[in-house]
Nucleic acid binder design. Structure first.
Lengths: 240, 240
DNA sequence: CGTGCTCTTGACAGTAGTCAAGATGAGTGG
DNA sequence: CCACTCATCTTGACTACTGTCAAGAGCACG
């Protein structure tokens, strides 16, 4: 059940059996979330962190005027609020975008890992640093890319991240159930404009849309359009 | 010389004399950077991390079309590429915006800290997580705030961060030497539009500009305009 | 077979970008 | 001490990408 996480970690570095055991034992509790359910609210004091086992979650911030910005979409294998271990409260909310399965790890357990397993600790630290790298790429997108390139880039990112945890079949296609409003909140656009952008991508034969699903039909072409370079995801091996 | 870092860490948690010693000893080498000098290039293999002692640095990404996006501005006390310790190469460049003094810490030294000083390690991890929180706030700004609010918010952020390391006198004013092009690259705008926004902020009596210096004359009013809430900077105390 | 979400589209508006021509000002060399 | 140069800042006129408003279509669900 924590396979996506292990797969992701082992892509980067070796994870010993003892370390794998430690991780497995750290996940005491398991829960299901409904689509739309808010898992963590901004400012709450935290003493557990969430490992996403299946489904999609989103971290987002709300503004006074009612607008919302999604900061990151999370896929299975993501330690959604591991950063909460050192921050103790979050500066954003986290909600389930679809029905989800999550595992809960207490901060006590994480602290024991931090005391007794320096190598594993560095791997976890690495994971939070990759999240920061993803944030940076979003800053670049929001600051300097056009709506169309932003959309293409986001879809490429999801494709790459899902593939990394083995959630894309045949490499050539993947589909995602997400509303256009939510895409808009990821991309700093309005839902209306997201619709127009998707319309154009569909006309170019890059994506398809069906009942709340976006299907990327031609990832390579999309990558080219987005000028996508996955190096910011740190998927390469580098034992430490 | 590493006082700003210590001040920042002690704002969050206790730092024992032994830990302080360890940090001081970790900084073997010291260097000066000229304004404009690139300290780290995207993709380079790294084996040291940079602690900014004085001056300003910026992390930025370049796009094929020649445009640039600054991801974060760094102030004294920032461990500019501490995340390079686990990432081993960066997904962005780092350059000096002004003349700077930096301290260099080898990854070997950091590894020793990670093995022998779990509490200090958690503090360093915390620091990289705060960087990620700053990234998140920028995502929000770029995605959902207007040019004027973005500018006001950025200036508030700098004010708050500089104040946290004791670099703002009298709380009521601070000045920064930065070109309008660079502000534009922070805010996802053009230099022309930055000029217009500053012009309006000046007319409202919130900032002044003189020879490449921006002077914030009325921080409280600026905070109100920006709707600034510093909680994302995690300046409060929380021993762990 | 209504009731509500979402998605679509069209017409119009506005924030920010582009292009271009000065204005300023610091630094340099005669 | 006075041109001269180069970078940066300013402004104006025009453009365009994306937002706003609004109405209708499509579809799941009870």
């Amino acid at each position: 059940m924590i396979d996506p996480l292990l797969k992701r970690l082992r892509m980067r570095d070796d994870v010993s059996d003892a370390e794998e055991m430690t991780l497995r034992e750290a996940i005491r509790e398991r829960r299901a979330l409904q689509a739309g359910e808010v898992a963590v609210r901004e400012g709450e004091q935290l003493n557990v962190s969430i490992l996403l086992l299946s489904g999609f979650m989103a971290r987002y911030k709300d503004l006074q005027d009612g607008s919302r910005q999604i900061i990151e979409l999370n896929v299975p294998g993501d330690f959604v609020d591991l950063h909460g271990f050192t921050l103790k409260r979050l500066d954003h909310n986290i909600a389930a975008m679809t029905a989800c399965q999550i595992g809960l790890v207490t901060h006590e357990a994480l602290k024991r890992i931090a005391e007794d397993h320096p190598h594993l600790t560095r791997l976890l630290w690495f994971m939070t640093n990759v999240d920061a790298a993803i944030h940076r790429e979003w800053v670049l997108s929001l600051g300097r890319r056009t709506a169309q390139h932003r959309m293409a880039h986001l879809l490429c990112e999801l494709h790459a991240r899902l593939k990394a945890v083995g959630a894309v079949e045949a490499d050539c296609t993947f589909s995602m159930s997400i509303r256009q409003v939510d895409l808009a909140d990821c991309l700093g656009l309005t839902a209306v404009h997201v619709n127009r952008v998707l319309h154009e991508l569909r006309e170019r034969g890059l994506v398809e849309m069906q009942r709340g699903q976006i299907i990327v039909t031609n990832p390579p072409a999309l990558r080219q359009l987005a000028n996508f370079d996955d190096s910011y995801l740190y998927l390469e091996r580098h034992p430490a």
